[in-house]
Design a protein around this nucleic acid. Structure first.
Lengths: 242, 242
DNA sequence: CGTGCCAGGTGCCCT
DNA sequence: AGGGCACTTGGCACG
């Protein structure tokens, strides 16, 4: 036995020790991390090959697998929650295999050396996260203070469905004209204009009178190209930050 | 000294030990992970509060900070590469502070207990990842085999710029008509139609003869709504998987 | 389950 | 630095 064990961490374990410990941790529903030299192969919606190097591998109890290098916020390879993990020894080396279905995707991590294997007990589910500054909050504010859009604006419905999808806020202005609001929590690109335009056109067809429908993009700010796109399509912009 | 040290891992370290070790690791450009009971506060583009619970915290040498719970593929809180970390003791508790600029964003992790602190040496930069099955590969295949689109199709340019943005592939058909291709590597939603439509309209204005321009969406498959949207806008679809 | 859409999206390339 | 867009986008809500 060459490995040293302190708490739930094994330093420089053999492949066999790591295999047993890792399999046990996954079985028990614990969170396990490995750090060491490995190669990574992914095949699924896309495919990738990653040559040897030191990486940090995390196996979560919910089936998530994350492979991180020393840089970047996103994992270089991963497997989503619900994936099935299995561990085995091949040619004396630890191999972590992860399988996902729908779509079928496969991730294989082959370790040539394991610096550390750690197992953590996460206990009961963690406290929930509350986020503020979302689009949902913008919507709430507009419903409470419709004059943020313009004097006389009256919201009539949220998520009103059209053949092209659901409109964020549906209402009418002081002159009784139909107004559609598309909310964006940050500076927007051209895609939002396409979205708003689809809704306006779909509603004009749906109400099929010669009704004029106003389409209004509500966001903190817009780019120049978006300003021109809005003008071209006869749409409007109201500045509002979340 | 109550903490036990094996390799580069401290089990149940005191706040002071953890503070020294973590600060040193960050300073040296090592990768550090903590696991323990903590609260997390974020404020920036949005804001969030996370109550006490066991989490896994990773500090990368490039300035990335990731806070993971026992579930989910994405971190529950994070800070992007380039952020500045600082560690201190407050009321005898370890506090990790991370600051980002442009936009100004702040992340604070307060530990009430540290189960483990580990420091890893990542060595030289890791081997690069090669991915296949991307949109770029679709483009390459079409350039090599234009008949994948239709007999007689001739690609003339890629990334040709229009007032609305760059077109994936620009070419002409057997009858000399201008053809625009918008490539998607997976089943597409309505947004892609908006994108293609913008390009077609922009080019029709740009070439400002009464030239007919064909817009073709190239993807593995499309939804029904997209099929209708394409028809409405006089656009076409060619099935092609990456 | 697929479809649609938000996200503190992130990352990459371009101007 | 800002704009535009791909991404194994991930995640959620809804039909």
């Amino acid at each position: 036995m060459t490995a040293t064990e302190e708490g739930s961490a094994l330093s420089e374990p053999t492949s066999e020790e790591a295999c047993d410990r890792l399999a046990g941790a996954i079985e028990r529903g614990a969170l396990a991390t490995l750090f060491g030299e490995c190669t990574v192969a992914y095949d699924g919606r896309a495919a990738s090959e990653l040559g040897p190097g030191k990486r940090h591998v995390m196996c979560k109890p919910d089936g998530t697998v994350l492979v991180h290098t020393d840089e970047g916020q996103k994992p270089i390879n991963w497997q989503p929650p619900g994936s099935d993990q299995s561990v085995r020894i091949e040619d004396g080396r630890l191999v972590l295999h992860s399988q996902r279905s729908n779509p079928d995707e496969e991730l294989v991590v082959r370790f040539t050396n394991i610096d550390q294997l750690a197992v953590f007990e996460t206990g009961e589910t963690s406290t929930s996260l509350s986020v503020t500054g979302t689009e949902a909050e913008m919507k709430q504010r507009i419903l409470e203070e419709p004059e943020l859009i313009e004097p006389g604006f009256r919201p009539l419905a949220t998520e009103r469905t059209t053949p092209a999808g659901a409109v964020d806020i549906f209402g009418e202005d002081g002159k009784g004209r139909v107004v559609i609001l598309e909310l964006k929590r940050r500076r927007v690109g051209p895609d939002a204009v396409g979205q708003l335009n689809r809704y306006v056109e779909a509603l004009e067809r749906d109400l099929h009178a010669g009704v004029e429908i106003r389409g209004v993009l509500v966001a903190p700010s817009i780019t120049d190209r978006v300003r021109r796109l809005l003008a071209t399509n006869g749409l409007e912009f109201v500045a509002l930050a979340p």
